[in-house]
């Protein structure tokens, strides 16, 4: 019997998985790209208007602002989470006695959805209700913190809330990494007289490179998906100053009833992610290829 037919029942068992991949993932992807070349409004139709939707997309202020915002948000969010998450992990690691308490505190925000995070911070940062109003009530009447009201500042607050929510996750990852660091490495560095911050900078952080890559990937997917935190915290405002691409897609898909433009935006997002991921995927493949030099 041919060996490839001997496992037919295994192939059969995998069939549903294959069907899901082909139809649910690839199928919808192809359909989305196809729709971006149509003039579909509220209901999908199958005509062909070429690149008209893309032309409009790149001439739409809202899209340009969304792209700018996702870059600002992404950069601040990822860097902020990595830096703060690592510092928290160091802090918890050095205060081993209170580790359980501290870890719970820092991980708590993660138990909240982005929606709740956004709402809570919207209340706190709302000048008329939250921080500013309270400080003024205490007597500092000139105190002003109204970034949420300022078009060019709101996205920074969104990034801040995102960092607040997600840095606990990074902390947990980094803490696991720190725990894996050989204790003798610390001793060796102390004998060498290396200052503690330099030990972290030159020895520990390089040793935690895989943790940083994992955390960055997790955070990057959160950035691409970022929608709920913006909706809950600013609803894209003031005006359209804190819009993000995912919200653009959803709004035009449903409320604005312009499926053509929405799918064009979704396609641009897909291509961007692929372009960013390609070198990394290639590198992964390249590095894990047989013959990688590594002595035992």
């Amino acid at each position: 019997m041919q060996p490839r037919f001997r496992n037919w029942h295994v192939q059969l068992a995998l069939l549903p998985a294959w069907l899901i991949v082909v139809f649910a993932y690839l199928g919808t992807m192809v359909f989305t790209v196809r729709m971006s070349f149509t003039s579909s409004k509220g209901i999908p139709i199958m005509d062909d208007v070429g690149l008209r939707q893309y032309d409009r997309l790149f001439h739409t202020d809202r899209w340009t602002i969304s792209v700018e915002n996702i870059l600002i948000f992404g950069l601040l969010f990822i860097l902020g989470c990595l830096v703060l998450g690592f510092l928290l992990a160091v802090f918890v690691d050095r205060l081993a006695r209170f580790e359980n308490t501290l870890r719970t505190i820092f991980l708590y925000p993660l138990a909240m959805s982005f929606v709740v995070t956004g709402l809570v911070w919207q209340w706190i940062l709302n000048p008329a209700l939250g921080l500013q109003a309270n400080v003024r009530n205490w007597g500092w009447t000139s105190f002003t913190f109204d970034w949420l009201e300022q078009g060019d500042r709101a996205i920074y607050l969104v990034a801040f809330a995102g960092i607040w929510q997600s840095c606990g996750l990074v902390m947990a990852i980094m803490l696991a990494g720190l725990r894996g660091v050989d204790q003798e490495l610390w001793k060796a560095a102390r004998i060498d007289g290396i200052p503690t911050w330099r030990i972290y900078l030159h020895i520990i952080i390089p040793a935690l490179a895989p943790m940083f890559i994992t955390a960055t990937l997790l955070l990057a997917t959160a950035v691409v998906r970022s929608y709920d935190i913006v909706v809950a915290m600013t609803a894209g405002g003031p005006g359209i100053s804190s819009e993000v691409p995912a919200k653009f897609v959803i709004d035009f898909l449903f409320t604005r009833q312009n499926i053509g433009l929405a799918t064009a935006a979704a396609t641009v997002m897909l291509i961007t992610v692929l372009v960013v991921l390609m070198p990394w995927l290639y590198l992964q493949y390249f590095r894990s290829a047989p013959g990688a030099r590594r002595a035992a």
């Binding site: 005006g239 100053s241 035009f252």
Partner: peptide, 13 residues
């Protein structure tokens, strides 16, 4: 929606 965007953007900028 475009009208809303334009007005909202003007208001906040």
């Amino acid at each position: 929606g475009q009208v809303y965007d334009a007005i909202g953007q003007f208001w906040s900028d």
